[in-house]
Design a protein around this nucleic acid. Structure first.
Lengths: 105, 105
DNA sequence: TTGACATGCAACCGTTTGGTTGCATAATCG
DNA sequence: CGATTATGCAACCAAACGGTTGCATGTCAA
């Protein structure tokens, strides 16, 4: 779970996930192409995404195809985001109350 | 959006959000208490959470009460997670197919 | 006013991060 | 075979991160 959050912390890596979401199974070279970053930098980002299990790579000859794994994102939504969505309106009410200069706490 | 992802990348900060979710409006001292970390470290984490607008602080005399703002988390769920939840089953199918050693790509 | 409590600010420090460059390896093509 | 393509590995580097310590400020209470 922590690895997933950390992996998502970098905009470049989120961009890579977006790209794979648009077109799954891309190679390293394909992913690098429009990214204003060296191939090796992208390699490292992909390694971090793989480490977090957000991306699964499959070698095919001299190419390496990258596939999006949606499970960790789903898990975060379920186990973490969901919790905060529950009390959401209450929290917003708390907040608004305080920000409106409520005298007493 | 980037600030939110970055803020969520640290387990200590997620912990702080969890604590505020359990009990909203806690002071710095209250939040530090069980955290095996110096008060100043917590201050920095809270500053990052405030910067990301995940926490809103209100001074009350010599105390500073911290309130959870659920909006950025909601936004991430809406604008980012949701997208991946859409194609989720398809992506999983793609992945499974490849991992099962599908000959042709 | 004095003391204690709650927080703020700033300097410093080791480690991690995100990136680079250079070279090595492996697979396809002619 | 040799050239080209696709990727891997390693060393290096500046900047950001997460944390510390020391001191300053502001507020409540006796």
């Amino acid at each position: 779970m922590d690895k997933v959050f950390r992996a998502l912390a970098d905009p470049g890596r989120r961009r890579l996930l977006d790209r794979l979401h648009e077109e799954n199974g891309q190679t390293l070279a394909q992913l690098c192409a429009p990214l204003a970053m060296s191939r090796q930098a992208v390699t490292k980002h992909l390694a971090i995404l793989e480490e977090a299990n957000l991306v699964v790579a499959v070698r095919k000859g001299r190419e390496k195809r990258h596939y999006l794994n949606p499970v960790p994102i789903h898990d975060i939504a379920e186990r973490w985001i969901h919790k905060f969505e529950q009390g959401r309106l209450r929290a917003l009410a708390d907040l608004k109350k305080k920000l409106e200069g409520e005298a007493d706490g």
